[in-house]
Design a protein around this nucleic acid. Structure first.
Lengths: 146, 146
DNA sequence: TATTGTTATACTCTATAACTATA
DNA sequence: TATAGTTATAGAGTATAACAATA
């Protein structure tokens, strides 16, 4: 049984993600953002969420943690929370104009960061990388609904 | 200029690393460990560090942060800190028997976690993944010595 | 009672600044 | 003065438990 000669992929992944994450943190911080804020903005822009619970799931955090971030983002004027008249337990989260602007500003920083990381790699290599990462993730992610 | 059709690789990487990291956290916590502790144990086992400063660099954290973890690990009986007689400013960090045992216990959990992640991927694919991640990391890592 | 969200609280990891001890 | 490490303090992100509001 030929032992793999590569370092544990988990170690390589963790190391890379740490370096990339720290660089990304700095890139976002430089334009007044953070990773959780960015993830929440993405989730708000890309899906129609009916509840904060759903939003929290999309971002991968607990409801209370989401509340924590939404408080800050609402204070910063990025979004508004209004109750659904149909079911007043549910809060609708919507981006303000400032929130939209912020989203685009962070998006630019994210794109720049991505381009920096992609330097020297072909589109095909990036696609391969994305595919492999996706398969890796599938092995550690609980299938939705379980 | 053909826009890449893949999702930003940073997003894919962050998402994968988060899922993998959380799963790894759980795997380590189940045997009484954590990622920083694991990283410190690895650094202690794989290199001969002359100072804590060097150790901190190897783990990628600040000296004060390392002290924080070493305090906990020393209290837990995983290691000892003794002054170098030659230069009493320098502390030598050494694993106790309990530290060695803990290292092996965490290593088992880490290997199991790695095997879980590798499921369905060939050794060649893992090697490719590791290579690509390494090249990605190089783009966001400050070259040593700068 | 069940569901949605918030508040209160605390834990982990991290960092910076000020400090101690050694040289 | 310079270096190795620690202490004090703080901040970000996360979580759980208890709670309030609504159904």
């Amino acid at each position: 049984m030929p032992r793999p000669t590569t370092a544990p992929i988990g170690v390589v992944l963790a190391r890379t993600a740490k370096a990339a994450g720290q660089a990304f943190d700095q890139a976002l911080a430089a334009v007044g953002g953070s990773q959780p804020i960015w993830q929440i903005l993405i989730a708000l822009k890309t899906h129609q969420h009916t509840s904060q619970r759903e939003l929290a799931d999309a971002v991968g955090i607990q409801g209370a943690t989401l509340t924590h971030h939404l408080n800050g983002m609402e204070t910063a004027g990025l979004l508004t929370r209004t109750r659904d008249p149909e079911n007043r337990r549910v809060h609708h989260v919507e981006l303000t104009d400032h929130g939209e602007t912020t989203f685009h500003r962070l998006a630019e920083a994210a794109v720049a960061h991505d381009n920096r990381m992609r330097t020297g790699l072909t589109d095909h290599e990036i696609a391969t990388l994305a595919t492999l990462l996706g398969r890796l993730a599938a092995n550690v992610t609980t299938p939705a609904g379980e």
